[in-house]
Nucleic acid binder design. Structure first.
Lengths: 146, 146
DNA sequence: GTATCTGCAAATTTTTTGCCAGTAG
DNA sequence: CTACTGGCAAAAAATTTGCAGATAC
């Protein structure tokens, strides 16, 4: 079962409200675009896509909306080292694999009960891993104790 | 035992030669700066640091040198989503943890014999992980078979 | 009613490029 | 010699900011 647009809107409303932010047509459109997007769009991609629903939206507003949505934890900001940031609204835990050949980003879904690194390397996706980079986010020892 | 500067220079010479690139004073200085750097410097950081050894070097040359060095596999280009790319010349396998509190990048060295994700989460660094992102690099199914 | 948000345009930041003289191999 | 490089300055790309009017709550 998939999340309906009403459910999504309510999730967005609540998340924004909890941060003191407001629900707007532009933010809803950006959030919806991310939620249905199978790829990992750049801010520009989101701008082009969302403009079909909200013709007057500006790129600056897209950036601001993305920041608000990422700030609420409803999407992730990714960097693949190719210049521009990419955004991912997929709530399921998954990794990303960038193909050196075609630069495509492949999603790797991992069974959380199995050892994560082990299961993802030879996985059923056919992706042959040559290198990987792991970024952890959290609080360092100093900030944890403070 | 640590790698001497002579060893490093030879490694750089060989790596550049194998790619048809030339060994230059500027590239050696950039490589040396990365090798002794404990942080994860931006291109600008490298520029400022290397300028002490090679006063006339330009930022554009730093970018070109970094590209050559990363292209040879002697360093990694990292993105932490904070605007500018960062470079890492540490050859030991390790992960990176960004502190949400102070934005510091903490290196996490992992015993390769242990389950990787498991061992890094509660590790002896005191880093409290709230989120992580894994980027795999390699060849997708299409590019592998082609 | 008021603090927040949007769109616009301009500014900033980061990275890349073109060109010509210089240099490694 | 000859192709690859470095420095310079200009360009391109990505993102952020200031502000005045509009809007959510």
């Amino acid at each position: 079962m998939t999340t309906s647009q009403q459910d999504r809107d309510q999730i967005l409303r609540d998340a924004l409200a909890s941060r003191g932010h407001r629900y707007t047509e532009q933010r809803a459109a950006v959030f919806h675009f991310l939620a249905v997007s199978r790829s990992h769009p750049t801010a520009e991609d989101v701008f082009v896509g969302v403009r079909e629903d909200v013709p007057g939206i500006s790129l600056a507003t897209v950036y601001k909306s993305l920041e608000a949505i990422v700030g609420c934890g409803l999407a992730h900001k990714l960097s693949f080292g190719d210049g521009s940031a990419r955004y991912d609204g997929n709530p399921d835990p998954h990794y990303h694999a960038r193909c050196v050949g075609c630069d495509q980003i492949v999603d790797i879904h991992v069974d959380p009960r199995r050892g994560a690194l082990e299961s993802m390397v030879p996985g059923p996706t056919g992706f042959r891993v040559t290198d990987y980079h792991i970024e952890l986010t959290g609080y360092c020892a100093d900030c944890s104790s403070g």
